[in-house]
Structure formats: structure tokens, C-alpha cells
Design a protein around this nucleic acid. Structure first.
Length: 815
RNA sequence: GCGAGAGUGGCGGAACGGCAGACGCGCCGGACUUAGGAUCCGGUGCCCGAAAGGGCGUGGGGGUUCGACUCCCCCCUCUCGCACCA
């Protein structure tokens, strides 16, 4: 009897596949096969592979293998997103150099990927921390700089006074530094930004091209970009004559404005406070807010604010209203100043009540009077405009566009659009990243490093522990250079780029691995891209995907690529959790995939992941794993597949008809499931076919056709077992992974006899075997002849008989 | 607060508006075994019943339909995302 033993099968095929170059994408221009670019979100080398990798790459690899068997020339590359803070911090904790730590992890992960049997084209392997790679990251920075899409400005950041370093928002936990627990401060630093806001509208519009995306990713991106339509209106400060613009989505409430509020960072605040004589009251507020960490700002309490003691003139009615400065108005959104309409905005109402400001109702529910003084909740629903000059009686919200048009005519404002999206801050005052290829010249300012001097190499001999300024700035010689323009002494930019810059273009590089002349060859990219199927975690639903979409549009504008969306199809795997919570070291609930692979095999690991449920759903390992020393269910199944295929291979008899029908029905169903990434139901159908083979073999019949079909369909899911069966047991010469996906015979796939359900008044009373092509009339007669149905009808009159041949007859009685 | 998604046996999960619980795990019983963490066979939603059979069942309540896990409305719970966005 043929026994299944992963430990002898799997290492053997890892080596043979490698020797045969089985997964190398073909660059032969004469290759007639359609291309298929199967892309997995590349790995971050923070240690060995974890369960999340195991699941995501199991799915991605299944997609790639299925595409290959369906006749595609598949590009399935792998690489490492290897720069960045997590690696740097982990290395510092261990007293290692980030480079050594990172490359060690990459090697470890690469070994694990091989052991798992991933069908990668290893010849395209890349690491974003290689100078050969980040040279082109720097080149892309320069291209953005040339186009005015990379610029420097002063911006507030989170600052840990103990570690003396800037922290990313994600590193601030409850207002404190994640490493030392010190309360984080706010500092203003000059930083590099990418002008992604220029592309806000295109990033929205082009979502139409994302043909197969999870809805929630679309929604999250849409919300993140946060487009709001409304109007920009110009108010004048009475005391100083300054003109101040505000953005509002509700220009129809302009006649209800009773005060005006500035954000604390608004550039006019100090001047106005001095003009109004309120500076001694305003200054403490500004200082307090400045000292508050950015992350805590958002939770800051309600309606504090200070009167500036100056006034704004409402351009629609000439009214004079008091001005305030308050933290609830954000400098980052709109213009950093707002018109306040307490009757129709809850925040404004809260503020008005706190500060004793008037409330004026200008939109009322149809036919109702409302007094502002009695209002407890702002009215933000539709209604009719009142006390609104020329617009009295107009219906809101339809009137919004009319008011905006009128503002424009009158020269007091204009219809406008505002986005929540902000420019992408890419500066990091940390060591482990691609240096920003800019030289600061005392005479010429920010000067691009000439392309032929790239890469600006990250030096190894750096004290990279955080401590006051960029580690690169502390290097004794690195930053000293000459200005490319004038040759005078100049200083390199000592910041490095956000890791997300590295990962925003790696999928282009895969198309032209090792190209020393350019980031990628447009012809290679034209041949392979856009990506056919992108697979990865939903945690990248916003940043990585948005940045990649942005980069692609910039490259399109540069004429280097002919498409504007890099990933029209995206598949998100769920997370692997444990006991309802994410796995983490502090919870002590981490389960690693490699021990499972060593013990039961990579095929078992893959099948456990894919059979656990729909690919996009979370997997709670605690619920599906069972005893780690006991043979998992999917392993037992592979064992049954082996014995059945082994017996079938030795038997001469033909497959019996009912097994043949089951085989073809299974091919049809599994093909459909695979196309829709329904791996769990595909596996279930293969298990049913396995059971069918067992029954046929036990009855003394053959099962060779079924055996071949099983081996082929198993190939994308359990590649080692499938290969062993295909080549060693069934005696095929070619690898199962370059064999054609099985075809099915429509006639055989159709069922011959089906179970017809007989219902009486909607309740199942009998089941009758009928021919699959039975007529309505025949089904009706059979149903009415059913003894059980007759008993259930119990002599009542039949009001209606619903027939859905051949599956169902429902006899409705009158009562 | 706003937005999105999800609630089905002991568990993971199946079900073009038409047999609810496929497939698997677990469990129960049996076979083979020195052994079982191996393998094979049978059973397994809940309740009543010896059985035949009957009743109840997809978070709760309404609705549409001959027929609803599926479609519509309201509510509850959970998960995720955003969160003073003017």
C-alpha cells in the first residue's frame, strides 16, 4: 500500500524543481502563452516567516500555479522590503548592525520559502536595501523633485525628548514613546514631502479601473482621500483689513454665521491677537497646544478656545462677528479657519454654548419655526432657508450649488473642493533607509545629486543609535561634499526616505531585474504589467496601495508606462489570529509555521490555511489547529489520496460511469472555485472525489481517470504531493506543474438522476429520484402520486402546484 | 459619532430565492492491533418517540414570495476602518 510521507517527498522535489528551473518566467518573445503577473506583497524581514506570510503566500502561490496550468506564462517574483524602523530597532535591541540583522533574516526567510515550495522565479529576487535597488529609489526621488512633486516644508512631528529622536505616529503609544515610555512632545522640523495631493482627484477617478477589489479597500481609500464639495468664502477682519478664506460644505448656512474660529497654528493668529490686545490670553493656549503630542491632539477635549477680540465681516450680509482661536479647528484641513454656524453644526453649537455666543437658525424643517436659543442639537438635515437674504424659501441642500454660484458672481467666494488627503511626509531622521539624494549648498540651496553619481551610498560605519539628530549627520565625513552646481563645499541631506517609498515601485523592478541602466525597461514593463493578481494583507489597504497608485500615475505622466493603475485586481487574505486576538510576543500566543512544515509538511501547512475557510476571512489558529502532535485532518486526507491513487495506478479496469461523472463534475466545480479563489470549497470537492474513488476501488473497479484528475487539481494546492503522485505514481514524465489543467466533458459533468423534493405547503414531505431532464408534467405527476405527499395533503383542496423541474415540486393547499 | 463587513451544529465552515448544516475537525460506537499520536467502517443539529414518524431550528422582530440563511425595513451583538475633516 502506498503511504504518504511528506518528509521524504518534499525535500526531494524542492531540489528537483530548482534544478529544472521550473518556475522561471519566459522572456522569449515568441512564447505564445498569455502573460500572467502573480504578485505577492513582498516580505518584511523582521525574523523568520510567520503565520501571516504562510497564509498569504499559500494563496498567492496557488493563484500562480493555477494560472500556469491554465496555459499562462507566469511571472511570480519574490523580494524583501528590507529598509525601515522595525529592522533597525530590532537590530539595536540585539546589539547588531541593521545590515547584518536584515540580511540574516532575508536568508532565513528565503530558506523557509523554498522549503514551503513556493513557485518563485528566484532569478528576479530583490532587496530594497541593496544599493543596486535603492539607487533607483533615489532616481525616482529626483524625478519627483524635477517635477516639483518633492518639496521641503516645516512640519510638526512627534519628538521623544529622552531618545532625542523623531517618532512615527505608529511609534507613539497613548502619547508616549513606545521604546522608553517618555511623554512625546511636538516639534517643528523641515521635512521632505511628496505632493500626492496633486493627484487626489485622479486617485479617486481611476478607482473605476480597479475591477476586482475588496469593497472595503475601495471605501477606505475613498474615505482617506476624503473629497468634500462646498465653497471657499472670503471674510475680512474688521480691525486689520486682513482677508481670510474659509472652506465650508454648507454655504447655504452663511447667513447663520455668528462667530469665526482660527486654528492655533494659523499664521494670522499672533497678529490678530496683538491687534485685539488678547495676546496675553492667547499665548498660553498656543503654547499648551504646541506641547501636546500630535496623536493626543485628536483626543483633546471639547470646546476650549480664546477670544481674539477682533471681528470678521461676513461677506454675504456685512455682519460683524467675533473671532476666536480654538484647538478644535485643524490647520491641516481646509484653510485652517472656519465660519461657525452653531445652529447647524454640533461642534459650533457646543462651542457657542460654552462661550455664550448667539445661535441663529437659517434652515428649518418645512413649515416650522425654530428658535436658536432653545436649540440643544444642531439641525443638519434638509429644510428650507430662512433669514437668508436673497435665498429665503430655497430648499436645502439643493440650494448649496446656487449659493456657491452666487458667491462667485458676487466675487465673495467660489465653489470649491477640499480633500482630507495630505502630502506624504517621507523624511526619516533614522539610519536604516535610502539616503535622500540632495545636497544643500549655501549658494544654490537644494541641489539634486546628478544621476550618474547615484547611488548615494548608505555608509556602514555609523553610530546608528538614535540620539539627537540624524545618524548620518553624526558621521564624521559622510555629509561633507561639494555642490554639483558650483563645486563649493556643501552638505548632503542626512535624512533617509520612508520605507513606503521603497515599496511603491518594487513591482516595476521585478520586470527588469538587474538592469544597470535604469530602474526598469519600459518594454519589459509593457510586456508584464499591469499586475494580473495582487495578493496581500488588508493592512496595506491605504498607504502602500495609495502610494503605489500615485507612483504609477507619476510614471505615466513621465511617459514611462502606458497604464495608470498598477494592480487592477487585489485579493486580501485574512489574518491568522489566536484565541480571538492577534498573535504577539507580549501575549505569548505566537505559533510559527516552520515547525508545522517540518513536522507534517508544507502541503499540510498550505492545505490547513486554504481549507480553513474563505481566503479573505481571518483564521483563528486555536480553533483549527488541534493537537500539534496529532496528524492533522488534511494530512490524513493526503494519505487517503495516496492509497487511492496508488491502487488506481495498479489497476487496469476502466473508471465506472458514476465515478467518471463525479470526476467531470468535480473538475467543473473546482475550476470554478479556483477562478474565484474559493480554495476551501475546491478542497472539499476534491475530498468528495477521493471518497468516490475509494468506493469505486472497494467495489473492484478502476479509477485511473479520477486519479489523474486528482493529481492535477491538487497541484496548485498541495504541490509536493501532487508532483509525487503525477510523476512517481502515475508515471508521467513532465512535472505536474507544467501540465495542463484538466478539462471536463459537459455531458458527463451534467447529472443524470437527481433527487426531486416534494413539498406540501412549503414543507419537505418526500424525496423522489427522477431523470435530470424530467418534464414539468412528469415531475408534477410523480409528486402528486407520492404517498407521503398525499398523506400530508390530507384531503385538502389543491390550490396551486409550483413545479421547478427536476429539483422541486411544491403543492399548495387551500385552507 | 461616521463608514464598511459579519452573526448558521460542540468547532472551522457549505448552501444560482428551492433538500439548511456539504466537506472537515471533534465526539460516540465498532474493526484491525502488543500499542496508536496509524488505518478502516458506521453514527452524530435540537426535542418527543422503541421504531415508524412528528415537531423545532440559520442573532431578535416585521415584510415580500407558493417558498427566505439568501431579498427589503427596524432592532441587538461582534469585528474592522476613520475619527473635532468645517
Amino acid at each position: 500500500m502506498l503511504r504518504y510521507d511528506a518528509s521524504t517527498i518534499e525535500p526531494k522535489w524542492v531540489e528537483r524543481w530548482e534544478a529544472e528551473g521550473l518556475y522561471r518566467a519566459s522572456e522569449d518573445p515568441g512564447d505564445p502563452r498569455p502573460r500572467f503577473y502573480a504578485l505577492d506583497m513582498f516580505s518584511y524581514p523582521s525574523g523568520d516567516l510567520h503565520m501571516g506570510h504562510a497564509e498569504a503566500f499559500s494563496g498567492g502561490d496557488t493563484v500562480a500555479r493555477f494560472a500556469a496550468m491554465r496555459g499562462h506564462n507566469v511571472l511570480h517574483p519574490i523580494g524583501w522590503d528590507a529598509f525601515g524602523l522595525p529592522a533597525e530597532n530590532a537590530a539595536i535591541r540585539r546589539g547588531l548592525h541593521p545590515k547584518a540583522w536584515t540580511y540574516d533574516n532575508i536568508e532565513q526567510q528565503a530558506r523557509s520559502f523554498r522549503r514551503m515550495g513556493m513557485s518563485f522565479d528566484w532569478s528576479r529576487r530583490l532587496h530594497t536595501c541593496d544599493p543596486e535597488y535603492y539607487r533607483w529609489t533615489q532616481w525616482l526621488f529626483l524625478k519627483l523633485f524635477e517635477r516639483g512633486l518633492a518639496y521641503r516644508k516645516n512640519s510638526p512631528v512627534n519628538w521623544c525628548p529622552n531618545d532625542a529622536t523623531v517618532l512615527a505616529n505608529e511609534q507613539v503609544i497613548a502619547g508616549a514613546c513606545e521604546r522608553c515610555g517618555t511623554v512625546v512632545e511636538r516639534r517643528d522640523l523641515t521635512q521632505w514631502f511628496f505632493k500626492i495631493t496633486d493627484y487626489a482627484q485622479r486617485l479617486l477617478d481611476d478607482m473605476d479601473e480597479l475591477v476586482d477589489y475588496p469593497d472595503r479597500v475601495i471605501t477606505m481609500q475613498r474615505n482617506w482621500i476624503g473629497r468634500s464639495e462646498g465653497a471657499t468664502v472670503r471674510f475680512t477682519i474688521e480691525e486689520t483689513g486682513d482677508e481670510v478664506e474659509i472652506f465650508t460644505t454648507r454655504p447655504d448656512t452663511l447667513w447663520g454665521v455668528t462667530f469665526f474660529v482660527f486654528a492655533v497654528e494659523h499664521p494670522l493668529v499672533r497678529r490678530l491677537a496683538e491687534a485685539g490686545g488678547s495676546w496675553d490670553r492667547v499665548q498660553p493656549l498656543l503654547e499648551r497646544v504646541r506641547a501636546t503630542p500630535l496623536t493626543a491632539r485628536e483626543e483633546a477635549d471639547t470646546k476650549e478656545g480664546v477670544a481674539l477680540d477682533v471681528h470678521a465681516v461676513n461677506p454675504v450680509n456685512g455682519e460683524t462677528i467675533p473671532c476666536y482661536v480654538a484647538p478644535y479647528v485643524l490647520m491641516e484641513y481646509g484653510t485652517g479657519a472656519i465660519m461657525a454656524v452653531p445652529a447647524h453644526d454640533q461642534r459650533d453649537l457646543d462651542f457657542a454654548r460654552q462661550h455664550g455666543l448667539p445661535v441663529r437658525v437659517v434652515i428649518t424643517p418645512e413649515g416650522q419655526e425654530r428658535s436658536g436659543e432653545e436649540l440643544t442639537e444642531a439641525w443638519d438635515h434638509e429644510g428650507v432657508m430662512v433669514d437668508s437674504g436673497p435665498f429665503d424659501g430655497e430648499r436645502s441642500p439643493e440650494s448649496i450649488a446656487k449659493v456657491a454660484a452666487w458667491l462667485q458672481e458676487e466675487g465673495r467666494g467660489r465653489a470649491s473642493v477640499t480633500y482630507r488627503l495630505r502630502d506624504w511626509l517621507i523624511s526619516r531622521q533614522r539610519y536604516w533607509g535610502a539616503p535622500i539624494p540632495i545636497v544643500h549648498c549655501p549658494e544654490h540651496g537644494e541641489v539634486a545629486v546628478p544621476e550618474d553619481q547615484l547611488p548615494v551610498v548608505l555608509p556602514d560605519d555609523v553610530d546608528f543609535t538614535p540620539g539627537g539628530e540624524s545618524p548620518l549627520a553624526r558621521h564624521p565625513s559622510w555629509k561633507h561634499t561639494t555642490c554639483p552646481t558650483c563645486g563649493q563645499a556643501a552638505i548632503r541631506d542626512t535624512d533617509t526616505m520612508d520605507t513606503f517609498v521603497d515599496s511603491s515601485w518594487y513591482y516595476f523592478r521585478y520586470c527588469s531585474p538587474g538592469d544597470e541602466e535604469r530602474a526598469f525597461d519600459p518594454e519589459d514593463v509593457a510586456r508584464w504589467m499591469p499586475v494580473s493578481q495582487y495578493t496581500g494583507g488588508v493592512e496595506h489597504a491605504i498607504l502602500h496601495l495609495l502610494y503605489s497608485r500615485f507612483f504609477t500615475k507619476v510614471l505615466y505622466d513621465m511617459g514611462l508606462v502606458s497604464f495608470t493603475e498598477p494592480f487592477p485586481r487585489l485579493m486580501n487574505q485574512g489574518q491568522v489570529i489566536y484565541g480571538g486576538a492577534s498573535m504577539s510576543k507580549s501575549k505569548g500566543n505566537i505559533v510559527e509555521p516552520m515547525p508545522l512544515v517540518e513536522r507534517w509538511g508544507a502541503d499540510t501547512m498550505r492545505l490547513m490555511m486554504l481549507f480553513a475557510g474563505p481566503f479573505e476571512d481571518d483564521i483563528d489558529w486555536k480553533l483549527i489547529a488541534g493537537d500539534p502532535d496529532k496528524r492533522p485532518g488534511v494530512t490524513s486526507w493526503l494519505g487517503r489520496v495516496f492509497t487511492a491513487v496508488g491502487e488506481a495506478a495498479e489497476r487496469d479496469a476502466a473508471d465506472p460511469d458514476d465515478l467518471r461523472r463525479l470526476t467531470h463534475r468535480t473538475i467543473k466545480g473546482v475550476t470554478d472555485d479556483m477562478e474565484r479563489f474559493r480554495f476551501n470549497t475546491a478542497i472539499s470537492k476534491l475530498q468528495i472525489l477521493t471518497n468516490g474513488m475509494r468506493a469505486a476501488l472497494d467495489a473492484g473497479a478502476g479509477a485511473r481517470e479520477a486519479a489523474s484528475a486528482v493529481a492535477l487539481m491538487l497541484a496548485p494546492l498541495a504541490p509536493f504531493a501532487a508532483e509525487e503522485l503525477w510523476r512517481e505514481v502515475l508515471g508521467n514524465a513532465e512535472s505536474v506543474h507544467v501540465s495542463a489543467w484538466p478539462a471536463f466533458d459537459e455531458v458527463l459533468a451534467r447529472e443524470e438522476r437527481v433527487t426531486m423534493v416534494v413539498q406540501v405547503d412549503g414543507k419537505v414531505r418526500d424525496r423522489v429520484e427522477v431523470d435530470a431532464d424530467a418534464s414539468d408534467q412528469a415531475c408534477r405527476e410523480l409528486a402528486l402520486a407520492s404517498e407521503k405527499a398525499v398523506r400530508a395533503i390530507d384531503g385538502r383542496q389543491i390550490a396551486q402546484v409550483v413545479v421547478r423541474a427536476p429539483r422541486l415540486v411544491n403543492v399548495v393547499t387551500s385552507r
